[in-house]
């Protein structure tokens, strides 16, 4: 599947970070798989209308960790390494997302049990979707 990146300028998240996060997201949700090609720095910069050095910075971060790999003359591809956020970063980012989810739940009058059940269900659904295409092919 093609990579789809949407960036928002003026956000509290720097643009390079938005690109990194969305490529990671595409991998963990199974939209991109190891070996899938990525657009070139130039092409993605032109497509998103952002400074090419910003894209280069995002690709640099992902290739240092092996999440994407460059093949000489052929471009960038999704690699086999999984993202490795350190424990404290993982905690902070998940905590802020959890807070947002709970706020929504309170706003909509949902119970804790309802929210937890929904999380389990959604999690299973995503894993299923990720496995899906492999089984068919």
């Amino acid at each position: 599947m093609a990579l789809r990146v949407d960036i928002v300028a003026g956000s509290t998240t720097p643009i390079y970070r938005q690109v990194v996060d969305q490529i990671r997201l595409a991998v963990v949700t199974g939209d991109l798989e190891p070996g899938d090609p990525l657009p070139s720095v130039r092409a993605l910069a032109a497509q998103l209308v952002v400074n090419p050095n910003t894209i280069a910075k995002a690709y640099g971060e992902l290739s240092r960790s092996g999440e994407i790999v460059s093949q000489r003359g052929r471009g960038m591809f999704i690699g086999h390494a999984a993202p490795t956020p350190d424990a404290s970063e993982r905690r902070t980012r998940l905590a802020s997302e959890a807070e947002r989810l709970i706020q929504q739940a309170l706003l909509l009058g949902a119970s804790q049990a309802e929210v937890l059940a929904l999380i389990r269900e959604t999690w299973a659904g995503l894993e299923e979707a990720k496995k899906g295409p492999d089984d068919e092919s």
Binding site: A9, G10, P14, I15, R42, A45, A46, V49, V50, N51, P52, N53
Partner: peptide
């Protein structure tokens, strides 16, 4: 913005521009 990104990439044009639009600066400026 597209023109600025395009020409700085294709021809390595060095660009200095004045503006008040900070979100655009974040997009295109080094």
């Amino acid at each position: 913005l597209e023109a600025m990104v395009h020409f700085s990439q294709r021809d390595h044009t060095t660009i200095l521009y004045s503006t008040h639009l900070l979100a655009d600066v974040e997009r295109v400026a080094d």
